[in-house]
């Protein structure tokens, strides 16, 4: 919509002033080198020069554990009460392009505007203004540039996008929500940059990308029966430890389980993240398990990212953030899997 600029020192002033009215969620250093998105009390806590947080921004819109409703068993009837609705307005600051893209994909999954919209997700999504932050220095494991519509400066569905320039930030105002935030705080912004400046800067940043992978036709290749049945998955599963690091730090993984906390005759029903890497994930009554070994489970994860997601929503389920290959205890690498699978076909 429009392109503006904000000085680096003015940015923290802006964040501090926003904090008075809204809740700010931004990357903070929880422990040495451990960056997480958290509620922020002062702009000083916000880390700007990070490469990627450990957990993605999905944790804000789709919390690891989210309470759904309360219940009480009154012998003749079951009383169910909604929990107090989310109120207030939120600002999610500092989301990287890969995480922004993942929100775009999660919008599809949780059917943001559709008939079966997930009210818990939608509530937070509607109340949140997203300020994205381009990567100035892509990390060693980042490969977003290899994916369609993504780059270290891609705006995706951010309301406002910041790109670090020399001494200040280039600001792109992209939606009505973004427009409102900028016009309410217009004194912080100036007119300085144009769209061309962004393009030049993008080229500069992209030239620093280390990791690339060719994802052309990967969906079609994954659909082939001999790829599905290949021994490759067995071989790959040998090194998998079967933990859930990859799925829990993945910005697009969205499977959850529904459980109760109950004591006596009352309790709370909640949902929490679940992982297809766990052996009880697909376990059914009578001990039947359609994915009995790690072979099926590992295959499922890559099939979901690269094939099923595309079949269902028309987009790849991977955003190239590189978290899983970096944090996997055995470096099970999705970029390697993509190129290996291409050789199978």
């Amino acid at each position: 919509m429009s392109t503006k600029a904000i000085d680096k020192n003015k940015l923290s002033e802006l964040l501090n002033s926003l904090l008075f009215k809204q809740t700010l969620i931004a990357p903070v250093e929880a422990e040495e080198d451990i960056l997480l998105f958290k509620n922020v009390e002062s702009a000083d806590q916000v880390v700007l020069d990070y490469q990627n947080t450990i957990t993605p921004v999905k944790d804000w819109f789709f919390s690891q554990t989210e309470e759904l409703f309360e219940f009480k068993n009154k012998i003749t009837e079951l009383e169910i009460n909604d929990l107090p609705a989310t109120d207030g307005e939120y600002i999610l600051f500092g989301a990287r392009p890969c995480d922004l893209k993942s929100v775009e994909l999660l919008d599809l999954v949780f059917d943001e505007d559709g008939e079966f919209s997930d009210s818990f997700y939608k509530e937070k999504r509607d109340r949140t203004t997203i300020i994205g932050l381009s990567c100035s220095e892509p990390g060693a494991y980042c490969f977003c540039n290899s994916l369609d519509g993504l780059s270290p400066t891609a705006t995706c569905n951010a309301d406002i996008m910041l790109t670090e320039m020399d001494g200040d930030y280039l600001v792109e105002v992209l939606t009505d929500k973004g427009e409102k935030l900028v016009s309410d705080n217009s004194s912080y912004f100036s007119d300085k940059y144009s769209e061309e400046d962004k393009e030049t800067r993008t080229e500069e940043i992209v030239s620093n990308m280390k990791l690339t992978v060719d994802v052309d036709d990967i969906e079609a290749i994954m659909q082939k029966e001999d790829v599905y049945l290949s021994d490759y998955w067995q071989e790959l599963s040998l090194k998998c430890l079967g933990c859930a690091v990859c799925t829990y730090i993945c910005p697009t993984c969205h499977c959850y389980d529904i459980r109760d906390y109950s004591r006596g005759n009352a309790g709370i029903r909640y949902r929490c993240w679940d992982s297809c890497m766990f052996n009880d994930f697909t376990e059914a009554a009578g001990d039947h398990n359609p994915r009995p070994t790690r072979r099926e489970r590992v295959r499922q994860r890559f099939m979901h990212k690269l094939r099923f997601f595309d079949e269902r929503y028309g987009d790849t389920g991977c955003v190239g953030c590189g978290r899983c290959l970096e944090k996997c205890p055995v470096n099970l690498d999705i970029t390697r899997v993509i190129s290996d699978v291409k050789e199978l076909a």
Partner: peptide, 15 residues
């Protein structure tokens, strides 16, 4: 402070 961050990914267990 440490346990609060735990993701329960069970990597510690599986390794």
């Amino acid at each position: 402070a440490h346990f609060e961050r735990c993701l329960r990914c069970y990597a510690c267990r599986n390794a």
